[in-house]
Simulated assay, not measured.
Amino acid sequence: MNLLQALLEPTPLPPSDRSKRVAINSPLYNEILEFFYDEAELLDTLQLRQWGETLTSDIEYNLPIRLTRPGRLQDQTVVRTVQHMHESHGSLMVRIMRITDTKSAWGEDPPSRTRRLVTNVRVYKTDKDNEYKVQSYLLVTRNRFDCDEFDLIPCERHDIIRRDGSQLKLARREIIVDQAVIGTPNLGIFF
């Protein structure tokens, strides 16, 4: 791997250790699930500044590309050195500011109407205190303008949630979209 590839590849996620899985309906699981439901509401109702406050200052936010491979090569369908999005806290804040504070965000003006349906949430303790790996499925519906059609974007998310005082914050997100070719134009929404 050369230096450029090393810079572009995201920090590896910790493993999903089934022996460290947090029980469904435990207080911690419910708190994390509520975090995801509240996050979906913030994004769907365009409360982007408030969503930005739920991010850690060292967040990594990645949307790698997907390739179609034969069955024996399924472990090579996600390419992390080439990404649709490779964001940091600074770049996410600039995107939020551009959408909310300027008139130049034509890709999202008028804004998309979205719904984020979060399901299959699995929470794992990590080796770091107060950090949790969370795997979930996400279905995003998106409609623009006065069209009667809408986009469906199914994906899997791998997140790191970190406790910061009394709050939970998003420290890492990797979005694995099911499609090899994303059919929605001007993908300016957050996942």
Rank of each mutant, 00 (worst) to 15 (best):
Ile32Glu: 02
Arg69Asp: 05
Pro110Cys: 11
Thr45Ser: 13
Ile32His: 04
Ile189Thr: 10
Leu42Trp: 08
Ser136Lys: 02
Val79Ser: 04
Asp38Ser: 15
Ile99Leu: 12
His86Ala: 15
Ile24Ala: 14
Ile182Arg: 05
Asn120Lys: 08
Thr141Arg: 03
Glu131Asn: 04
Gly183Phe: 03
Glu149Ala: 09
Pro14Val: 15
Arg18Ala: 13
Met85Thr: 04
Lys133Ile: 03
Phe145Asp: 11
Tyr37Glu: 01
His84Val: 10
Leu67Asp: 06
Tyr137Leu: 07
Leu92Asp: 02
Gly183Asn: 05
Lys20Leu: 14
Asn30Trp: 03
Lys169Trp: 00
Leu48Cys: 10
Arg80Val: 07
Thr184Cys: 09
Tyr61Asn: 02
Val177Leu: 07
Arg21Phe: 11
Ser166Glu: 12
Asp129Ala: 14
Arg116Asp: 04
Ala23His: 14
Asp159Tyr: 01
Arg98Leu: 14
Ile32Asp: 03
Met85Trp: 10
Thr11His: 13
Arg173Ala: 00
Asn30Tyr: 00
Arg172Lys: 12
Val177Arg: 03
Thr68Glu: 14
His84Leu: 09
Val121Lys: 06
Ser16Trp: 10
Leu55Cys: 14
Ile160Gly: 02
Ala6Asp: 04
Trp106Pro: 03
Gln76Val: 04
Leu42Arg: 08
Arg157Pro: 03
Glu60Cys: 04
Pro10Gln: 08
Arg116Gln: 10
Tyr61Phe: 15
Gln83His: 06
Lys103Gly: 11
Arg113Ile: 06
His86Lys: 15
Asn186Glu: 11
Asn25Gln: 11
Leu152Phe: 08
Pro154Ser: 00
Lys125Gly: 12
Leu28Asp: 09
Glu156Leu: 07
Asp75Ile: 06
Glu39Tyr: 06
Asn130Arg: 10
Asp129Arg: 07
Ile96Pro: 00
Arg157Val: 03
Arg115Lys: 11
Arg72Gly: 04
His84Glu: 05
Phe36Pro: 01
Ile176Ser: 01
Pro185Phe: 09
Arg162Ser: 08
Thr102Val: 08
Ser112Gly: 15
Met93Gly: 01
Leu117Cys: 12
Leu3Gln: 12
Gln5Pro: 05
Tyr37Thr: 06
Val79Phe: 11
Asn25Tyr: 14
Met97Glu: 13
Leu168Ile: 02
Arg69Ser: 08
Leu63Asp: 02
Glu156Thr: 12
His84Thr: 08
Ser19Arg: 05
Thr100Ser: 09
Trp51Gln: 01
Gln47Pro: 00
Glu87Asp: 13
Ser16Cys: 15
Leu3Pro: 02
Thr184Lys: 02
Asp58Ile: 02
Thr56Tyr: 05
Val78Thr: 12
Glu131Arg: 07
Asp178Gln: 08
Lys128Ile: 11
Arg80His: 07
Lys128Tyr: 13
Phe150Ile: 02
Asp101Glu: 15
Leu8Ile: 01
Cys147Ser: 13
Gly71Asn: 13
Asp151Thr: 06
Trp106Glu: 10
Thr77Gln: 09
Tyr124Ser: 09
Asp44Gly: 09
Asp151Ile: 05
